[in-house]
Simulated assay, not measured.
Amino acid sequence: MSDSKSIQTSLVHFDYTPPEGFGAFPVPVHRASTVVFKNVEAMRSRDWREKNSYTYGLHGTPTSFTLEARLAAIEGGEHCLLAPSGLAAISMVNFGLLKAGDDLLIPDNAYNPNRELGRWLAEDYGISTRFYDPLIGEGIAALIQPNTRLVWTEAPGSVTMEVPDIPAICKAVRERRASGQDIHVALDNTWAAGLAFRGFEHGVDIVMQALTKYHSGGSDVLMGAVITRDKELNHRLGMAHMRIGFGVGMDDAYLVLRGLPTMKLRFDAHDASARKVASWLKTRPEIARVLHPAFEDCPGHATWTRDFTGAGGLFSVVFDDRFSQGQTDRFVDSLKLFSIGFSWGGAHSLCVPYHVQGMRKNWSGKGHLVRFNIGLEDPDDLIADIEKALGALSQA
């Protein structure tokens, strides 16, 4: 048989291999669905659960393996699984550890899609879901039933910003596990990005991150991660990852990798600006409360002082209850430098009003809540913008 190939075959099968020795800072983008094996023995000997070889694009390429290793290192973990969003990462944990008849505990101030997922598990999958007071601390022990398998935590809580006592919750769970119960603590650590709070050092078993936020930093990537220290636990979660078919695009993985070297610099800048803006807002008569964990009147502030090293750019305010929903909405609409939009962690400042009374069982606040994400603009310009928008309150 001749070795000569038609033009069409030559377009598919080519012999050129680039020379070795190329060096550059960016991690190469390896895109693949099909992974090619040297021979049948090599194909049969590989295990997708181990990260020492490649089997299929869904299970990773050198690009995603590199991102997983770097994310695990940031959190002080050993293993990492990537998912197409933060909510997908939460789903991976739930479906990896829960079955019909199990019990799930979620804090009342959790990220709302996590709450909705819990309700869905209860309604359609026979998994009892209970919502607990996020400031319960060691009192969580009284809520743990023999069939409780997973306790979610979030530090601080979404929108209302309460800071839970994670070590106390983890201690109660460890005591039950020591007696033979299959139970774990999962932490949504997105707010602190693994920089201002190290979950494993405070006792959690699983850390979830929405890489959509500070890790990418560009408001252009949807991705999540689940990080563990225990290999067997990682394998359990990995089975859910495989069965659900979670995968991420390598171009998106590259964008997150590109953001990591500047993440702490950006996080610290967000933090400094947010504290300046929040401190100014505390002086305003229109604002009844500033819900920022670094401030003494934020629920759980003492815990934040003990366990955290920073704060990032996200906080909320509660307007004086003399202002109507229409007035606070007009305030948000009047802002020029703040866009109205969910998610956060990017360079642009954001502002979103919330109906907290319909979201939280334990919320007793009377005024209307507005959440701020302070971006990377000059904080003095942001303050001037807010000051002007506050003037619109009386016009509704």
Rank of each mutant, 00 (worst) to 15 (best):
Asn147Cys: 08
Ala178Ser: 11
Pro26Asp: 08
Val185Leu: 02
Leu337Thr: 07
Arg44Leu: 07
Val332Cys: 02
Ser33Arg: 02
Ala392Ile: 10
Ala168His: 05
Ala384Ser: 11
Ser219Leu: 12
Thr153Ser: 08
Val163Thr: 15
Thr283Phe: 00
Phe14Gly: 06
Tyr125Cys: 13
Glu377Lys: 03
Phe323Glu: 00
Pro26Asn: 11
Arg236Glu: 10
Trp344Tyr: 15
Leu121Ser: 10
Pro18Val: 14
Ile74Glu: 03
Gln8Lys: 13
Pro107Trp: 09
Asn189Phe: 14
Gly224Phe: 04
His301Phe: 07
Asp251Ser: 08
Arg243Val: 12
Ser364His: 12
Thr17Trp: 00
Ser219Met: 11
Leu335Pro: 13
Lys38Pro: 03
Arg31Cys: 12
Gly313Ser: 10
His241Phe: 11
Asp220Phe: 09
Ala73Lys: 02
Pro293Cys: 06
His292Tyr: 13
Pro18Glu: 11
Ser85Phe: 03
Ile166Trp: 03
Tyr111Phe: 10
Ile169Val: 05
Val12Asn: 11
Val317Pro: 05
Phe315His: 12
Gly60Ala: 10
Leu195Gly: 07
Val12Thr: 15
Pro113Phe: 03
Tyr354Asn: 13
Val185Trp: 00
Asp133Leu: 03
Thr17Pro: 01
Ala192His: 05
His30Arg: 12
Gly157His: 03
Arg360His: 14
Phe22Thr: 15
Thr309Cys: 07
Asp251Thr: 14
Ala210Ser: 11
Glu138Phe: 12
Val318Trp: 00
Leu143Gly: 04
Gly60Asp: 02
Pro84Glu: 00
Gly358Tyr: 06
Thr17Asp: 01
Trp48Asn: 08
Val290Tyr: 06
Pro293Asp: 02
Arg49His: 10
Phe246Ile: 09
Glu162Ile: 03
Ser2Ile: 04
